[in-house]
Design a protein around this nucleic acid. Structure first.
Lengths: 227, 227
DNA sequence: AGGTGTGAACACTTTCACAGCA
DNA sequence: TGCTGTGAAAGTGTTCACACCT
């Protein structure tokens, strides 16, 4: 496991604290903001800069980072490449995650072609579907395989992360099978809540819920929590 | 605007309180859970039932609903069709939302074909792209239009909601143009934070961030806030 | 001076526990 | 008896403000 506490400063690492979901998402945004910088540009960045680029506050940036170490210099800010390095380590991106894509439909295919994954360290190494018309079709370097044989492939390749892009009705069953075959994290695009063991990490991407949230906020302009 | 407080019980409506994002998302899940029921089935549902189906607790369900009225009967639970009706009203789904799709690439096309939108009251009535090879192509009942003429179409059709499915580099500019043309809510698939006026509601769908969150949690099994 | 790191205050959300009604 | 509706308590996340270091 990554030891992100092995930082370069000489302050002791902070005690291991629980990290909230919102903090994790903000860390991802900070990293994106840093990696989007091209060319020479400034060599340091302040919490204020990062806050503006990630849509939060300077105090929030400092609090978030301070959960993992003291990466900044007082009066100066954070070193861009140093902080980038640390953030990648913190997020567990200093390795390649082999990912299985379950479902080769419209969403699956859009995700497969989404090149940003690869750049961030997520490599789709297997694609499964149950449609005989699709099985055997090559997608770039991988070939769509019969979902019936999924377990063997997941185990053989020691795949720990799966993207679930199948209809709601098939989601729970497939998720259980994937977990039984060793998967520990699931990115769920199916509009169905998965019931899985505690230890399995599930992230939901629910487009209908997001649209309905939009609808609520447009309908009740005065009842938004943030306002 | 929907007046969801006009409910059938004779208790007075609760005072208008701010509603948190998490509550809104749970309301959407309750509604999905109710609408997924097929056939006859029980006519009432308890907060416990809803909690199980939506992955939360009974107390949370009751608190969420109590922000909007007293829809249940003590000792009995909530009427399924009654609660469904109220939830649709609360979420602003008792109308059709005309939606513009900005970007006819892979994500845009997957979203366009996603039939659940229509069923929930979101109708994509215009699609824009800047690729001359795509402009003029019919997609079902609509034809891909040149994004150059977007403003006129948005205004003419009084479109208030847009789905932004373009590359990050084009996102900010397009979003600003859409807002200037009357759009008030944006579902943003571009991996770029939008800087827009307060009054505009933006929901982000950020797949890379979700995967990175998964990566973090798998890397630090003991630091998950929920655990 | 300038900007981080952080305890303390504040704000918000969830859980508890029980009164009250069908 | 059974289950809702809700204040109060507990828990969690964010903002403030300033000591401290460069």
């Amino acid at each position: 496991m990554t030891d992100f506490t092995r930082h370069r400063s000489n302050t002791p690492p902070p005690v291991q604290r629980k990290v909230s979901d919102s903090t994790i998402r903000r860390l991802s945004h900070y990293l994106r903001s840093l990696e989007t910088r091209t060319g020479p540009g400034p060599v340091t960045v302040s919490s204020e800069d990062l806050a503006l680029e990630a849509g939060t506050t300077a105090a929030q940036v400092r609090k978030d980072l301070s959960l993992f170490g003291s990466f900044g210099k007082r009066g100066t800010g954070y070193g861009v490449s140093d902080l980038t390095f640390h953030l990648r380590g913190i997020l567990g991106l200093d390795r390649v995650w082999r990912v299985a894509l379950l479902g080769a439909g419209r969403i699956g295919s859009a995700l497969f072609e989404y090149t940003d994954f690869r750049r961030r360290g997520f490599e789709i190494v297997a694609v499964f579907d149950r449609d005989p018309a699709k099985i055997g079709t090559p997608w770039g370097a991988v070939t769509i395989q019969d979902v019936a044989g999924m377990e063997a492939v997941l185990a053989r390749q020691a795949i720990r992360v799966a993207i679930l892009a199948v209809p709601a009705a098939a989601a729970q069953d497939l998720a259980e099978r994937a977990v039984a075959a060793g998967v520990r994290g699931i990115l769920n695009f199916a509009p169905a809540p998965l019931r899985l063991p505690e230890a399995v990490v599930v992230q939901e991407v629910d487009v209908v819920t997001e649209l309905e949230s939009l609808s609520f906020q447009l309908t009740h302009p005065d009842r938004n929590g943030a306002g």
